[in-house]
Simulated scan of single mutants.
Amino acid sequence: MRAGSLAAVCLSEIPDEPLLGRNSAGVVCITRSPRPGELYEHHLERLAWADDMVTHHGLRRALRAADLESAHAAGQPSVIGGVEGLDFIEGKLERLEEAHQRGIRSAQLVHYTPNDIGDFQTGVVTHDGLTEFGAEVIRDCHRLGILVDVAHATEQTAKAAAKVSTKPLLLSHTALAGSQAMASTRLAARCVAPDHARAIAETGGAVGIWAIFENLDKYVEGLKEMVDVIGVDHVCVGTDQQVVPGVLQDYSQWVNLIAAMLRGGFTSQEAGKIAGGNYMRIFRTAVE
């Protein structure tokens, strides 16, 4: 992070990680059903791992917008605690409050494991969108000060979340469906249609473009594709770090991305919005 002049990243744990594998097409999927309490236990283990990162590796934890501002001013790497999928709460909203107390400030509703919140893009549709419990989860996130992330959610789920939400939503990592710039179609099911993206932008939120492009110039093209749909004020970077193929395998490469954005025609103001300003705006609104 220091080598890449990067002040803050979202460090997301994956509660359903023990269940994940790849199918014959190389696409991530669940390989078995979770045992009762298994994902909650794994979630607690990863929270402890994040605590260790903060305690022993020179990181700060960002709990509010002011923490991000001070991290930037001091050049001190900081992490925003995130969780990719709320499968661990198992219908118990008190676990969401516990996660907030442990430093979680960004919560993705669904991932690869069926839950009682809503449908996800690569799974079987069972809820026809967001459930009433899912709506309760969103309202509780707003109450607690947790940014709601609708990455992996189906278009129907995301649009329902947008109707329930009274704060900006984040769709942290995706690309525009039919992207001409993306290197691989392997994750086409995880891309979003224009109307899907617009629903997020209309909440005042932002859509993060992941780094699944063959080079940085193509990545900039991918950013432009989404900007053309929802505007520069609603696009951000969502690397989904170390996904293969991907052009940002290490945070030290971040400065090269900024250079590519400027080279590709973005102004310095536009690059600043995409590289952090837009996220900062919705983070501030969501957590405070």
Score class of each variant (00 low, 15 high):
Val83Met: 12
Glu84Ala: 10
Leu86Asp: 06
Asp87Lys: 07
Phe88Ser: 08
Phe88His: 13
Ile89Lys: 08
Glu90Pro: 08
Glu90Trp: 00
Lys92Gly: 02
Lys92Arg: 14
Leu93Thr: 11
Glu98Pro: 01
Ala99Val: 05
Ala99Leu: 09
His100Ser: 08
Arg102Glu: 09
Arg102Tyr: 01
Gly103Trp: 04
Gly103Asp: 05
Ile104Ala: 02
Arg105Asn: 03
Ser106His: 05
Ser106Lys: 02
Ala107Trp: 01
Ala107Pro: 03
Gln108Phe: 05
Gln108Tyr: 00
Val110Leu: 09
Val110Cys: 13
Tyr112Asn: 11
Thr113Ile: 02
Pro114His: 00
Pro114Lys: 00
Asp116Cys: 11
Asp116Tyr: 03
Asp116His: 11
Gly118Asp: 05
Phe120Glu: 11
Gln121Ala: 15
Thr122Gly: 11
Thr122Phe: 09
Gly123Lys: 01
Gly123Glu: 02
Gly123Val: 03
Val124Tyr: 08
Val124Leu: 13
Val125Tyr: 01
His127Met: 00
His127Phe: 01
Gly129Trp: 03
Gly129Val: 09
Leu130His: 03
Thr131Leu: 03
Glu132Pro: 00
Gly134Gln: 05
Gly134Leu: 03
Glu136Asn: 10
Glu136Ala: 13
Ile138Pro: 04
Ile138Gly: 07
Arg139Phe: 09
Arg139Lys: 14
Arg139Asn: 10
His142Phe: 10
His142Tyr: 02
His142Arg: 05
Leu144Lys: 01
Ile146Gln: 05
Ile146Asn: 02
Ile146Lys: 10
Asp149Gln: 03
Ala151Arg: 07
His152Gln: 04
Ala153Asp: 09
Ala153Tyr: 06
Glu155Val: 07
Glu155Tyr: 05
Thr157Cys: 13
Ala158Ser: 15
Ala158Tyr: 08
Ala160Gly: 13
Ala161Pro: 02
Ala162His: 07
Lys163Glu: 15
Val164Tyr: 01
Ser165Asp: 02
Thr166Val: 11
Lys167Asn: 06
Lys167Val: 06
Pro168Asp: 02
Pro168Cys: 10
Leu169Tyr: 05
Leu170Pro: 00
Ser172Arg: 04
Ala175Tyr: 15
Ala175Cys: 15
Ala175Val: 13
Leu176Gly: 12
Gly178Phe: 07
Gly178Asn: 08
Gln180Pro: 01
Ala181Ser: 14
Ala181Leu: 04
Ala181Pro: 09
Met182Glu: 12
Met182Arg: 15
Ala183Gln: 13
Ser184Glu: 12
Thr185Trp: 08
Ala189Asn: 14
Ala189Arg: 14
Ala189Phe: 12
Arg190His: 05
Arg190Ala: 04
Val192Thr: 14
Val192Trp: 06
Ala193Pro: 04
Ala193Val: 13
Ala193Leu: 15
Pro194His: 04
Asp195His: 10
Asp195Glu: 15
His196Val: 12
His196Asp: 13
Ala197Leu: 14
Arg198Ile: 10
Ala199Gln: 06
Ala199Ser: 15
Ala199Val: 11
Ile200Asn: 11
Ile200Val: 15
Ala201Arg: 07
Gly205Asp: 11
Gly205Leu: 03
Gly205Met: 07
Ala206Tyr: 07
Val207Ile: 15
Val207Met: 10
Gly208Ile: 07
Ile209Asn: 06
